[in-house]
Amino acid sequence: MRKTVVIAACMGVAIGFASGLALSQQDKSTIEEIERYRQALADGNPADLWEMRGEGIWKQKRGPKNASLEKCDLGLGPGVVKGVYTVLPKYFADSDKVEDLESRLVTCMVTLQGLTPAEARKDPFGGPGKKVAMDALVAYITSQSRGMPMKVSGKHPKEREAYDIGRAIFFHRSGPYDFACATCHAVDNQRIRLQDLPNLLTAKDAQRAYTSWPAYRVSQGELRSFQWRLYDCFRQQRFPELEFVSPASIALTMFLAQNANGGVFNAPAIKR
């Protein structure tokens, strides 16, 4: 209920701005006003709270082995957090898998802290009255890559395989609405209602979109990870429920992250 009200309020603000303008300038002005609204939001980003909580959880001894995650190798060596989000997803020899940040955290919770995989994956996303460790860890770790260019490798055969499969998932049309990711994200300068749709096949748009996740979602009062972004896209695509850190979610992330290579990472961000 609260969600609907807030979204309605946001749309009301945008439409209110737009309706006061001359019709010939309508589209351009609407986009400018939405951009101004976004900038106004960015002045104080509650994502800071998730980042601080995440740093605490990273260092906190948890699980049957009573160990912290501080020795977790996220891709640049054990314990290295600085800049690590810019090289993910990547292939890890110890698990013999391509992993994104969230799936790698699950791996470390299992190997270092002694959780079962099911326990480590149990609470992927926060919600009303529910704060989860995963969101906070994602916020903290990604914040340590802010200002650094994306440089996902994709050289290992399994990384290349993930990219190729991720690309095929992007173009896979099915379900009752005949939607693929590509239906909304393969053409320049399109909108759904007033929302700009990035063309994720171009470097410019892929960089702008990918480097702005995770994000604090004003309309939901939550810090949303990239895994959540894909989960909710597929919901709107009328697909079944995407499982957290599933192979398809990681392959698609590999495709999108590589398309964003070169873009300067600028998250956790804030969005309507």
Partner: peptide, 8 residues
């Protein structure tokens, strides 16, 4: 992969 990655 998608059939194994989504659930009802």
């Amino acid at each position: 992969m998608m059939k194994a990655s989504f659930k009802d």
